[in-house]
Design a protein around this nucleic acid. Structure first.
Lengths: 152, 152
DNA sequence: TATTAGTCTATATATCCGATAGAATATGTA
DNA sequence: TACATATTCTATCGGATATATAGACTAATA
């Protein structure tokens, strides 16, 4: 009975970041095959298809059919940040719905939200987390990768 | 088909915080009945029982059976922080298992963890989140609550 | 005409979440 | 000892969600 590690990002979000970073590396170099992304990032192809489709609907990527086709990034790698991706695939960034701005909902448990200490503290965390995630773009990830490659 | 808001904290964690804050308010004032916590915090009693049991096993609270019994906090309210509670009920704080220290696991997707830009950036977020959550104790929540009550 | 993405359906497992019910056990007190 | 009170343990539940896999057919493009 091994304890399962539950992390916050689903496979879907994780795969979408991997795929987008890959596409960011090929930014403005033409379409990339689904099968190529699937192989290089080790993402189940059918699963990847549905993810890319979602990313297309949301305006991150576009696709071209036929020979020489594939997917390509349409947003600038500087403009795609982790906060937006998280909100797209996971929903709220706040730890409690009552502390969320984009996905606000009452938590139904405090008598008065304005004076709820838990909510207030959780909001502090959310503010800072959003700030950090907004500050991380695809371009930043690639830059960090290049930096790390130099030191190893 | 209303979109379900997915937040990061499960009811279990939320309830455990509520229950502990309640017990922190009665710190060193003797045991509190499960039924009393259940009512005041509006937590389903049976669910609360299993939560308190888990909190007892982990050394946060203790219980007394029989008349005049109930649950009481054994740790100092200053020493119980959100980071530890999160780890107990939710697991890792990091967004990806490969970026976690307490619940580390390979993510099986980068070729080289040491030079993975995603992992590195996610680690940055984790470090800061842990720092913030460690800094929020039950006592802090109660203090914040009292502060808010003054201004409203 | 070969290639590649898009759409659709269907299936499958696995896991988790929130909650409930009832029996068993321990404690304090009269 | 007997009783009331309270916690402990076990077990189960429906429903939702996550993570895929498979196949068939359509549409676009070089």
């Amino acid at each position: 009975m091994t304890k399962i590690i539950v992390c916050m990002l689903s496979k879907k979000t994780q795969y979408s970041i991997l795929a987008l970073v890959r596409l960011a590396r090929e930014y403005e170099k033409g379409p990339v095959l689904i099968s190529s992304i699937s192989e290089s990032e080790r993402i189940p192809q059918k699963f990847l298809e549905s993810i890319l489709l979602e990313l297309k609907k949301t305006g991150y990527v576009n696709s071209k059919k036929g020979k020489g086709g594939g997917y390509y990034l349409i947003k600038n790698p500087n403009e795609v940040n982790l906060a937006d991706l998280h909100r797209l695939f996971e929903g709220a960034i706040a730890l409690l719905p009552c502390a969320s701005t984009k996905f606000y909902e009452s938590c139904h448990h405090c008598k008065d939200e304005e004076t709820c200490g838990i909510r207030s503290k959780i909001k502090d965390i959310r503010d800072e987390t959003v700030r950090m995630m907004k500050a991380i773009s695809l371009a930043d990830i690639i830059t960090r990768e290049n930096d790390l490659l130099k030191t190893f």
